[in-house]
Every structure is written in C-alpha cells, then in structure tokens.
C-alpha cells in the first residue's frame, strides 16, 4: 500500500538524479569537445563537410519559413497597426520582431528539428553500429574526428541561417505591406531604419542565434553520443534532441532578452 504511494515519488527522484547526472556528463562532454577542437579545426575540411550537411541542407526550410513568417507578420501587423492609424510603422514592426525574437528563435527551432535531429541520429547510429568504437580502436578519437567538427559546423551555421531567415522575413513583410497592400515603399524602409539600431537589434540578435547554435548543437551531439546503442535508443535520443532543444532555446531566449533589451 505504502509502496504504491511511494513509487511515483521514487520515480520522480530517480528522474531528477538522472537529469543532474546527465547535465554533469554533458558539461564534461563540452569540455572534451573544446579540448579536442584544436586538432579537428586544424583539418578544417571535416568541419566544412558538416557545414554542408547542417547548414546548406537547412537553407530551403529556413528560406521558405522565413518568407512565410514575414508575410504573416506583414498581414497581422497591418491589421493591428491600421486600427491605430499607424500602418506606416509596419516596416519597423516587422524588422524589430524578426531581428530581436522571431529570427533567432524560429531559425534555432527549425535548425534543431532539421539538422540537430539528423546529427543525433547519425552519431547514435554510428555508436550502435560500433563505428565510434572502431575509430577508438584505430587510435582515432571519435570526439575529435566525429563530434567536434559537427559541433563547430552547427555553431557556424546557426547565425548564418538566422541572418538569412531575418532577410527573408523582412522581404516577406515587404511583399505583403508594400507590394500587396500598397504602403509607401520609402516610408516602409525609412520607418524601419529609424527604429532599428545596428548594435542593440542586429548584433544582439546575431549573438542570440550564436548562443542558440552552441546550445542546440551541444544537445544534438551529446544525445547522439549518449544514446543507448539500439534502434529504440537512437529514436528516443532523436526525439529528446528536438524536445530539449526547444525548451532550452525558449528558456535561454528569455534570459538573453532580459539581459539585452
């Protein structure tokens, strides 16, 4: 009787201990990646290859999503702003929402589900099929050869993708606001330029996306490396990458916003 009451508590305790344990392991893992980054960045070809898989192959989803998000912002922004007679500020609204929040956050969420999950699945499968072990036995450190290039590729790709997302979003807002609705072209851009500050908006947005890039890629490579080497283990790790990344991105976004703006 008492046992059935205590079982959920015990389960909860087990989960928390496990979470702390994994957090510690992940931190040690990050240190290991940084330690072996020297030798893997010296062979930059490896990282370039991963930039192709993580960054270039994410381009289409980033471009299309950015365009649609910008168009939605244009429509909704116009509907709301025109009620207050300030439809002229549409450019400022679109640019500020994208640069400060939507660009970095949505690009990171898309990156986590497109490239992060692929990284986890790939590393997890390499582990399950003994490829990581084989590398280790061939005196090649898998963290230096497999993990570190993917980590740096993610860190490089994320700000680039966020910047492209922003540009596409602003272009989408321009399409709806100026081309479809017929706002004045010059007002759209000048209102935007008046409202947007290079340092506090553009640079801070890029710093955000850089931080998200580190977080998402670390989660992705860690989940892959830590995956149980079975089919179920790898698929579980892939799901965890997407879920954990999403939560971490949104939580980090709050913290960064509180610091920056």
């Amino acid at each position: 009787m008492l046992d059935t009451l205590l079982a959920p508590l015990r389960h909860l305790g087990h989960l928390s201990v496990n979470a702390v344990w994994r957090l510690g392991f992940a931190s040690r893992f990050l240190l290991a990646i940084l330690r072996f980054s020297g030798q893997s960045l010296a062979r930059f070809q490896l990282t370039i290859r991963e930039v192709y898989f993580a960054g270039v192959l994410s381009l289409i989803i980033i471009v299309v999503s950015g365009l649609f998000v910008g168009m939605v912002l244009g429509l909704q922004g116009y509907n709301t702003l025109s009620r207050f007679g300030s439809a002229d500020a549409l450019g400022a609204l679109v640019a500020l929402s994208l640069l400060r929040e939507l660009g970095p956050v949505l690009a990171a969420l898309l990156f986590a589900s497109r490239a992060g999950s692929a990284m986890t699945a790939e590393i997890g499968l390499m582990k399950a099929t003994e490829q990581l072990e084989a590398m280790n036995v061939m005196a090649v450190n898998p963290i230096a050869r497999v993990v570190a290039p993917r980590f740096w590729a993610g860190v490089i790709s994320m700000p680039v993708l966020a910047a492209i997302f922003n540009v596409m979003g602003i272009f989408g807002g321009y399409l709806v606001g100026v081309v479809m609705i017929g706002l004045d072209d010059g007002t759209f851009w000048s209102q935007m330029q008046n409202a947007v500050d290079l340092h506090s908006d553009v640079v801070n947005g890029l710093i955000k996306s850089l931080v998200f890039g580190v977080a998402v890629t670390l989660i992705a490579v860690f989940e892959g490396y830590d995956a149980t080497p079975t089919a179920a283990g790898v698929s579980g790790a892939t799901t965890r990458t997407v879920v954990t990344s999403a939560l971490v991105i949104l939580a980090l976004d709050f913290v960064l916003t509180a610091f920056m703006f």
Partner: peptide
C-alpha cells in the same frame, strides 16, 4: 549568403 544577409541587415534595415 550569410555575409550578404548581415550586410543587408546592417545597411538597409539598420
């Protein structure tokens, strides 16, 4: 593309 995007954001948007 990334560099072009950042330049666009710096010059045309801000």
């Amino acid at each position: 593309l990334g560099i072009a995007a950042v330049v666009f954001l710096s010059l045309k948007v801000a």
